[in-house]
Simulated assay, not measured.
Amino acid sequence: MDSPGSPYASSPESAPKRSQRPRSPTPDDKEKSTHIRFLVSNTAAGCIIGKGGASINEFQSHSGARIQISRSHEFFPGTSDRIVMISGEFNLVIKAMELILEKLLAEAEDSNDADTRSKVRLVVPNNSCGGIIGKGGSTIKSLIDESHAGIKISPQDNNFAGLHDRLVTVTGSFDEQMRAIFLIVSKLLEDTHYPPSLSSPFPYAGVNFPGYPGVPVGYMLPSVGYNTSNYGLNGNGGRYPNNKGRASAASPQNGQDNSVTIGVADEHIGAVVGRGGKNIMEISQVSGARIKISDRGDFITGTSDRKVTITGSPESISTAESMIMQKVSSSLER
């Protein structure tokens, strides 16, 4: 039975045969609690939050659902995207999703952002993806046939130990995306293992990055091998174990971020940057700090150390420094 009055319920003309059709929520299902998570860029997250939280408060007020967004340094593993989680009764979740997508699509039209206009990436537990795929792919085919949207499920990413979620990418027009999301969430309602809610949109505290066993994503790392006890808004930094590194912290003015410059031996810069910039991008994503490395030949006076400038909150700077030193230590061991 289709949900009465739902704009995303099936029309008899366009629907596949009844035996193949995904089951839409019954009136009882519509009152069940559920949740949905999806990825957005930092810019889109700011758009959802709005000035002083005005937009997110409006979305919550108009939909009746709860909306949470991961913090600025909490990215879905392997991406630079934050996670939005909507939770509440089924119909409220769908309404909130509709309001948010309308807002993001309008912003994307203004900025000519074709990528945002054309796709939504849902975060779905790996053990719930089987129900969306169906035997021999029958369920996902019926979801595609009924919604007219493109639906693709990523393979499980084994690069991140402890990551048990996959991305379900939905492409198409706004109506096609919403119809597909409606059907996917309906399918997840049937899954007894799919939790009605999560305490946080970012449940990846135990996910390990490659080469960083035990390092929690988005959380502060312990200091590695050097003293940072003097760090503070007006303090001076400690020294690295080889005594070459020097750090200085600038006192922030008018609420601006801290900025710290450290020295890294020229021969270890490659390990910090990584192939194609992979390592430094990962460090920036996990820590939430901005990192700039001086040009070749631009050394700290009297040394052969390149200048690595880290900008952000004290916590993000400390995290970035720790990760940089782990890269340097690994390079020294090799």
Rank of each mutant, 00 (worst) to 15 (best):
G277R: 02
I56P: 00
M97F: 15
G255F: 11
T301Q: 13
A9T: 12
Q156P: 00
K187G: 06
D157R: 07
L99S: 02
R21C: 06
H62R: 15
G64H: 05
G46L: 09
G276C: 06
I262S: 02
P241A: 14
N258Q: 15
E190P: 02
G5S: 10
L105G: 02
H62Q: 15
T116C: 13
G302I: 09
N230W: 01
S331K: 03
T301K: 13
K17W: 03
S10W: 09
I132K: 05
N91S: 15
L221K: 06
S14T: 14
E282Q: 15
Q68K: 14
V286H: 14
K244T: 14
L198K: 10
G238Y: 07
I317V: 15
D295W: 00
K103M: 08
I67D: 01
E31R: 14
S11E: 14
L104A: 06
G131L: 13
F174E: 08
V168K: 01
V260S: 01
T26H: 00
T34K: 01
G50L: 08
D165N: 10
D113S: 07
Q256L: 09
N227H: 09
I132W: 08
L104F: 10
S330D: 13
T192E: 11
Y219M: 13
P196D: 05
S72R: 08
R117P: 00
D266Y: 05
N91R: 04
Q20R: 15
N243T: 13
R334F: 11
E176C: 12
M97K: 12
R275G: 06
S70I: 09
T116G: 06
F75W: 02
I317T: 04
E109R: 15
N242W: 06
S154A: 15
I280E: 02
R296M: 07
G137N: 08
E315A: 15
F76A: 04
P4V: 13
P213H: 04
G276V: 06
I262A: 02
G238C: 08
P241R: 12
G137I: 10
T319F: 04
E282H: 10
S197H: 12
G46V: 09
A180H: 08
P216M: 03
S24K: 03
S259Y: 00
E146C: 14
P195L: 10
G277V: 06
K51I: 04
N127Q: 11
G211K: 04
I291A: 02
I86Q: 01
S223W: 04
G136K: 09
N112C: 07
K51C: 00
G225M: 13
H35Y: 05
S87A: 08
S330C: 00
G232M: 04
F59E: 01
Y212G: 00
I280N: 01
V215L: 11
Y226E: 12
K32P: 01
S186M: 08
V124D: 01
S70R: 00
P201A: 08
S331V: 05
N91H: 09
I317Q: 02
T169Q: 06
S63F: 10
A161R: 11
H268K: 03
R23Y: 01
G206N: 15
E321V: 13
N127L: 11
N279Q: 14
D29T: 07
A15Y: 03
I144E: 06
E89P: 07
G312R: 03
S11K: 12
F202V: 03
